[in-house]
Nucleic acid binder design. Structure first.
Lengths: 339, 339
DNA sequence: TTCTGATGTGTTTACGTAAACACATTGATG
DNA sequence: CATCAATGTGTTTACGTAAACACATCAGAA
């Protein structure tokens, strides 16, 4: 039987040797069975599996894992868990990794690049097979350590910038510009804007900058831009909408940093008896599924969250493409209609 | 310099020995600095940190990790990522673990106990410090392996059942019963019910059973119970509500398995011009924050998602309490009012 | 028939860290 | 002033797995 630090009571976990002894084979054979690698005869495999089950052996990846560097962990950093967008990305990542027996180790950066750096240093200590990071902006130290360790990295959600190696996303500048154009084309001229996260969301900022540029160059006016602190929520959207609509120069359309805020805006309108888009048009971002359940539709930009997560995960587990893959996903403005 | 499997090109990651050589100390001293354990003088610490930074060394937990069994990984299984409830639980878990330098490795079971079993076997191969599992129902094999390995386990969300060791949650039967009583006390007598996940959500089922019992024993009638497949969503809630309200015996109150479904019901009512709770009362479950942004309030049961996650995480990292902790959190029916 | 490559199993050793133990040095305590 | 505990650092060794290599056996090809 395997022993462990003297005195650690009944903490003697079985090892491959124990399984091997019981099955009458060598430890190496057990290792091959556990990993499903190499040639193993049906009979031996059955014996080994049976022996392992009988003594309650669980494969220990920490052990040899440091001698062989093929570690089925993938580090994943997301900016927040409060936004459905990232849970959908995570779902795409998780399902794709699952198929290949990889497992995500994750951290939440709360939109802080310094926190992201600390997270990545920590996660790298697990020698992950790859890293999935949000956005293209990172600290210098983070870029350095990634270059030094040579870990495979997939950046996601954004393509406006300089990727470390591969990235999967779309252009937020284009998204902002297109929405501005769309609102202008629909005849709106006094535009409001509402965001959250206190401006830490760099991709939302990119959208807004491109949006504002186009609004102005087209000849419309940005009549108010609010940013709330903290995570985005319907409530924050509702409150900012109320504030925007009380202004002297009242907007005829409002662009929100995301659908949650926009839906909150819609709730304000419902509560106040305002018609959408008659009294004020609302535009969100992401195209989350719950929009289709609302009593009125709002305009939004459809983004492929699940697909981005899945593509990034595939990149990590792929043996192909050493570096330099940039996949730009299609996004499309979907025009809301009142039901 | 450290070498690695011959021929693996520039894949020679530095080791503690390299750092030690550069800093003029022993490998063990580097180990102590990296872990922040043992006694280290300020000067030596500074030298070591500097040397590590210079050569780009990242601590490798896989290596010695198998000799010492104090592994800062915690396995976390959630039934779904589609429901805000679990992302809030995850947030509580993550933030609490973060403070102690632990990291979650997670898996999604999709409400399947067999999938949960497979996930746990996989996660156990990382020799996690502990395991956080949803609910009290698990496969026999899972219970066995947990007993065999002696891994610390915290079950969460539910207290109606027989915990493996410690559990953190509340009684779903009580929640269902209380809501039934509340609706009865308010005078509702024809009650509808709507759920999702095709009945796989065992905790929702417990709520419903206790709810239905009380409804009947109190003398009201359950006039319809619908269950949609797939994850819960506002859209599913809206559709089921439409269906329930078309029935011959039209419900005067509807209980939903969660707030998303209930909010969908509210959207149906808004779209149809029905007054809530005048024409039909709606009751959800969880008390999610977005309810406060809706133009009308619905009744719900407040559950402490974040707190449950945080408590479970604390239990895992606590050296106290070898086993047998059951913490039942308060839940409360919060009555909706029309704004 | 002999050779060859696929199949199946064992032996030896490396992996990089951390525990265990040993041993200075220092400052405070009695 | 001797003793002791706290502080600081080094040496040796264990951890459990998987790579590398070795060596059978066997079927089909040459």
């Amino acid at each position: 039987m395997a022993r462990r630090k003297a005195g650690t009571e009944a903490d003697n976990q079985p090892t491959m040797h124990d399984v091997a002894r019981r099955a009458g084979v060598s430890q190496m054979t057990v290792s091959r069975v556990m990993r499903g690698a190499g040639y193993i005869s049906k009979d031996v495999r059955k014996e080994v599996v049976k022996a392992a089950r009988e003594i309650g052996y669980v494969h220990n990846r920490l052990a040899g894992g440091n001698a062989s560097y093929d570690n089925p962990l993938v580090g994943v950093v997301v900016p927040t868990m409060q936004n459905r967008v990232f849970t959908e990305v995570l779902t795409g990542i998780n399902e794709t990794l699952d198929e290949s027996g990889l497992r995500p180790v994750f951290g939440v950066s709360e939109y802080s690049l310094d926190a992201e750096e600390a997270l990545v240093f920590d996660i790298l200590s697990w020698r992950p097979r790859g890293l999935i990071l949000p956005g293209l902006e990172h600290t210098k130290a983070l870029r350095q350590i990634i270059a030094r360790t040579g870990v495979r990295v997939a950046e996601i959600m954004d393509t406006d910038g300089d990727p470390i190696s591969s990235c999967f996303g779309f252009s937020h500048r284009a998204a902002g510009r297109d929405m501005a154009q769309h609102l202008f084309d629909c005849g709106y001229r006094r535009i409001g804007y509402a965001a959250s996260q206190g401006g830490l969301d760099l991709r939302a900022t990119k959208r807004f900058e491109a949006f504002a540029d186009r609004i102005r160059s087209a000849g419309a006016r940005l009549v108010g831009a609010l940013t709330s602190d903290g995570p985005s929520s319907m409530l924050a959207g509702r409150q900012m909408t109320a504030e925007l609509l009380q202004r002297a120069e009242r907007p005829d359309a409002i662009y929100y940093a995301n659908d949650d805020l926009a839906a909150g805006g819609l709730m304000h309108c419902l509560a106040e008896g305002l018609s959408v888009p008659g009294d004020v048009a609302l535009a969100g971002f992401n195209g989350l599924g719950f929009l289709s359940a609302l009593p009125m539709r709002i305009t939004t930009t459809e983004t492929p969250r699940y697909e981005i997560g899945a593509a990034a995960a595939k990149e990590i587990l792929g043996s192909t493409s050493p570096a330099g893959v940039t996949k730009v996903f299609e996004i499309s403005v979907s025009v809301g209609e009142t039901t």
